[in-house]
Amino acid sequence: MANLGILSRFVGDAHIKVVNVDTEMSFAEVAEACKVHSVGLHVPNQPGKTLRVRRTTDDDSAQHFPATMKVKDANLRHLDCLDVYFV
């Protein structure tokens, strides 16, 4: 178990935010951790929709991480940037 600072690129938010996550967290929990810092603060909620997380890439085409996958299994580095988006 370790803390990791990741960059949250939350859809619709103006700012890229630093969010601390735990390596034991699932990506569903990562999505919730990022949501806390954007939805209801700088981004409106989208009730009924699900949040997904993927690596940020130049063309926004990365496959999303499975919701149950653990952070420790994703080979993330300090300050890697993640897209968090509604589907």
Partner: peptide, 16 residues
């Protein structure tokens, strides 16, 4: 702070 357009015209992105 790394920022860009919010909302539907969203353009926020970090260049690493």
């Amino acid at each position: 702070p790394v920022s860009n357009r919010p909302g539907p015209k969203w353009k926020a992105r970090v260049y690493q």
